[in-house]
Amino acid sequence: MSGLSFEARPGEIFGLIGPNGAGKSTTIRMIMNIIAPDSGTIRFDGAPLSEADKDRIGYLPEERGLYKKAKLGEVLEYLAAIKGAKPALYRPSIDAWLERFGLSEWKNRKVQELSKGMAQKAQFIAAVAHNPSVVFFDEPFSGLDPLAQDELLAVMVELKQKGVTVLFSTHIMEHAEKICERILLINKGKEVVYGSLADIKARYGRNAVQLEFDGDAAFVADLDCVESVVSYPRWIEVELKEGADSDALFRALAGRLRVRRFETVAPSLHKIFVRLVGGEDAQHV
């Protein structure tokens, strides 16, 4: 990691994005004071992060794990208690979260009896049960089925609405795109791009067209006005060369494809990511 500097603002959803091995988890571990940075500071509310601040932070580590032999309820209460929360606060909170994720009947069962998906949710509860004002989720969606992923996205938006600052890391751009206000894209430990999603999109791509069609669009990539093409299952996204006009593309398509949708768009985060991080790394995405 080097020369990384960013801030998350109170009450926003901030995405830490990068390919595998980019240093996302390392960054979060440094913020959590689990490992110490060689240089630089981590500030919380403007002051250097102290041990006491950790109480106000919830953490979902990338490496998931809870005490397997203990009962789920006891583990959650213990993890909330070492965050300095009072039983009167965390007990109802734990019950509410268990209810929310449909885990109430597992409260008195041992952690090792939980399925993988349930354990994931349990770990998420462990991060939020003490009502933190800031939460860090390291790859919160990994290992979850699509339904659970949507559930988690909804919960993260709810947390934000309650005024909680949500930071999360992911290498899945769609998740970041759905809920992030601002992002930091890193690669090989260095900043690639940082700012609000809207700004980044504006900066990197007035010049893209989403195209839905019938027929073979292989020729599109070879057109003079086209920089690159990303294929999605139902459409393609065409990035135009600088200075090229979308009209030129439209004219070039006429008669060769049956166009069902032609829409100039800001490029997807995925597209920006691929362009910025480049060929080799992009394959991991």
Binding site: K54, E63, L79
Partner: peptide, 13 residues
């Protein structure tokens, strides 16, 4: 091995 250590260290020294 159970990987609880990270979550513990995020709360206690």
């Amino acid at each position: 091995t159970s990987k609880t250590v990270e979550i513990m260290l995020s709360s206690v020294k």
